[in-house]
Amino acid sequence: MRFNHLVTSVTLSILLIGQQVHAKEWQIQMLNYGSAEQGGMIFEPAFIHAQVGDTITFLPSHSGHNAQSYVVPEGSRQWKSSLDKEYTFTLDAEGIHLYYCPPHLMMGMVGMIQVGAAKNQALIDKKAPRLRSKMALKPERMDALLSQIR
């Protein structure tokens, strides 16, 4: 009986360690200027397809930016970085994070992280147009993000 318990414990430990080793660390730059086709006030990359356990770090590559969640997957908490400060969090649930830069939302500074399956697609479909309506410039960026959801 003890041998079976030991084998089970060791097996679970190996599986957990294996999951941690495979977690990816993503970096998102907050930029005043991207490439010519991207234009100004962007997150780079603007769309990420990640997995539960991956970490996201927002880097204030240029000053005057922060990132704030607008929609998060069920079971995740809303988040907001401080202005001009690096911010890291771990993805803890499947679904889509839709986020923006509060000072530059009207300029179209939005981004999206899909974690595994798009379990909160209905909420994204409902709320994305509301956020898009606040974008005076580059509202097509929201359309481009939505088109990348799998």
Rank of each mutant, 00 (worst) to 15 (best):
residue 120 N to V: 09
residue 31 L to C: 11
residue 26 W to V: 08
residue 104 H to L: 02
residue 22 H to M: 14
residue 33 Y to K: 14
residue 89 F to R: 05
residue 38 Q to L: 13
residue 149 I to M: 10
residue 44 E to F: 03
residue 100 Y to Q: 01
residue 134 K to D: 12
residue 65 H to F: 15
residue 110 V to N: 05
residue 3 F to K: 10
residue 37 E to N: 06
residue 61 S to T: 15
residue 20 Q to L: 12
residue 113 I to H: 08
residue 35 S to I: 10
residue 78 Q to G: 02
residue 10 V to A: 03
residue 115 V to H: 04
residue 53 G to P: 08
residue 108 G to C: 03
residue 122 A to N: 11
residue 92 D to N: 15
residue 75 G to Y: 04
residue 106 M to H: 10
residue 76 S to P: 01
residue 91 L to S: 11
residue 150 R to N: 07
residue 64 G to A: 09
residue 49 H to Y: 10
residue 92 D to G: 14
residue 101 C to Y: 02
residue 138 K to A: 15
residue 110 V to I: 12
residue 93 A to E: 12
residue 134 K to M: 15
residue 39 G to R: 02
residue 147 S to A: 15
residue 91 L to V: 07
residue 131 L to A: 07
residue 147 S to H: 07
residue 123 L to Y: 00
residue 79 W to H: 07
residue 110 V to L: 01
residue 23 A to I: 03
residue 126 K to G: 03
residue 59 L to I: 15
residue 127 K to V: 10
residue 93 A to D: 11
residue 79 W to N: 06
residue 121 Q to S: 13
residue 114 Q to D: 06
residue 141 R to N: 09
residue 47 F to I: 03
residue 103 P to S: 06
residue 96 I to M: 11
residue 142 M to S: 06
residue 29 Q to Y: 05
residue 70 Y to P: 04
residue 52 V to P: 00
residue 52 V to M: 04
residue 2 R to A: 10
residue 8 T to W: 02
residue 111 G to E: 01
residue 130 R to E: 15
residue 35 S to A: 14
residue 73 P to I: 09
residue 120 N to R: 11
residue 79 W to C: 08
residue 68 Q to R: 14
residue 23 A to R: 05
residue 78 Q to W: 00
residue 111 G to L: 04
residue 44 E to N: 13
residue 119 K to P: 01
residue 82 S to M: 11
residue 93 A to S: 15
residue 43 F to L: 05
residue 33 Y to F: 12
residue 111 G to M: 03
residue 144 A to G: 05
residue 77 R to D: 13
residue 101 C to P: 00
residue 7 V to W: 00
residue 66 N to W: 04
residue 65 H to C: 09
residue 50 A to C: 08
residue 62 H to W: 01
residue 82 S to K: 13
residue 7 V to R: 10
residue 90 T to M: 13
residue 24 K to S: 09
residue 38 Q to H: 02
residue 146 L to N: 03
residue 35 S to H: 10
residue 123 L to G: 00
residue 54 D to S: 08
residue 98 L to F: 13
residue 132 R to Q: 15
residue 29 Q to A: 14
residue 18 G to E: 03
residue 65 H to D: 07
residue 77 R to W: 02
residue 128 A to W: 08
residue 39 G to M: 05
residue 126 K to V: 02
residue 18 G to T: 11
residue 22 H to Y: 10
